[in-house]
């Protein structure tokens, strides 16, 4: 089954569009990165970078120089690091690449004028969630190199996933409608951005805030309950020992 032949069914993705080749090369790069041979893995990195560059060429220009350069930097960082994260052999490197990808995403948020969310992403994701990942990796690190990480699922899974994801992205990208031009978003880019965000959050979405708070509390209690249930409490045995005496 040929990816480009299937993609030809889409209207915007033709063979002479760099977007088609970019998606194809990026998908091939992802698949090659999971190959056992080291040379193929390097080839995969190069293919992925060329794919990102081709997709970047196909995107419409933003108009201003500085936002354009920042966007390319941040988007390349985010997409390349996420590709590296999902294909890293070691889970520790995967977590670190994920943190790098989050920095790129936070930069993209800042570029959109979403200052609070850019900072919150760095603090909550890169600061807390990735550290939790690394903590669990430290607690649950099996001895030696795990063979399952080197072969992944049977050889069938990688081509199927690659083709499927390339098709999905191709369909998403090619079915983008032409968006008409709108004015500057004065509300989002207002000087008191964070104050307005807070006002909106606590005025219109107050119930949701309460619900999310409850979810966090329940998740905390649930996580503790899960861990306690797995490990029988040591105190029980010492109490039994005390009553025996």
């Amino acid at each position: 089954m040929n990816v480009t032949a299937l993609l030809l069914a889409q209207t915007a993705l033709t063979l002479d569009s760099p977007m088609t080749w970019g998606i194809g090369l990026g998908a091939a790069g992802l698949a090659l990165r999971l190959a056992p041979q080291a040379a193929w893995q390097k080839l995969g990195i190069i293919a992925g970078l060329i794919g990102i560059a081709l997709i970047g060429v196909a995107l419409p220009p933003l108009g201003d120089v500085l936002p354009q350069v920042l966007f390319w930097l941040m988007a390349t960082l985010a997409v390349f690091a996420s590709g590296a994260a999902v294909t890293s052999r070691s889970a520790v490197y995967a977590a670190i690449w994920f943190a790098v990808s989050l920095l790129g995403v936070a930069g993209l948020f800042l570029l959109q004028g979403a200052q609070f969310l850019g900072v919150a992403t760095v603090v909550v994701y890169a600061g807390a969630i990735v550290v939790t990942f690394l903590f669990v990796l430290m607690l649950a690190q099996p001895e030696g190199h795990s063979p399952y990480d080197r072969i992944s699922w049977a050889g069938f899974a990688i081509p199927i996933a690659t083709i499927g994801v390339a098709l999905l992205i191709g369909t998403l990208v090619s079915s983008l409608p032409e968006f008409g031009s709108v004015g500057t978003p004065n509300e989002i880019l207002h000087k008191t951005h964070v104050a307005r965000l807070g006002g909106e959050l606590y005025a219109k979405h107050l119930v949701s805030v309460e619900v999310v708070g409850t979810i966090l509390l329940v998740a905390l209690v649930g996580a503790i309950a899960i861990v306690i249930q797995g490990n029988p409490r040591r105190r029980t045995t010492s109490e039994e020992g005390a009553s025996d005496r």
Binding site: G26, L59, F71, V79, L108, L176
Partner: peptide, 15 residues
Amino acid sequence: NEAALLQNYLVVGGL
């Protein structure tokens, strides 16, 4: 260009 910005971000999000 707000429309181009939106399209670029949609592509990055999809990727």
